[in-house]
Amino acid sequence: MKKYLFLKVWVVLIMLTITTTLVSNSTLSKTRVAILILGLSVFKFFGVSFYFMELKKAHIFWKISITIFVVFLTTILVLMR
């Protein structure tokens, strides 16, 4: 199970990257596209930090800190758009 965990995360990250690029070319409204693009990027950010950087195993302080940072930043960016 653990043997293929990184591979599974990598596949999801690549799929999210392709989806993000496709979403940017969609005909949805600008605000929706911005929310989708940044939302998908947040998932990718969590994929790298929690799995590749192994924050999943770390103390809850680090998990909360990185979550607050990325959610706070993307919220500001969406609101400013």
């Binding site: 940044l38 990027s41 950010f45």
Partner: peptide, 22 residues
């Protein structure tokens, strides 16, 4: 060293959508 390398990923994951797509 690995954490520093992954940090480059994290930064790019913020730069790419905003600069290239938004």
């Amino acid at each position: 060293s690995a954490a520093f390398w992954h940090m480059c990923d994290l930064i790019w994951l913020l730069l790419f959508p905003i600069i290239y797509l938004l």
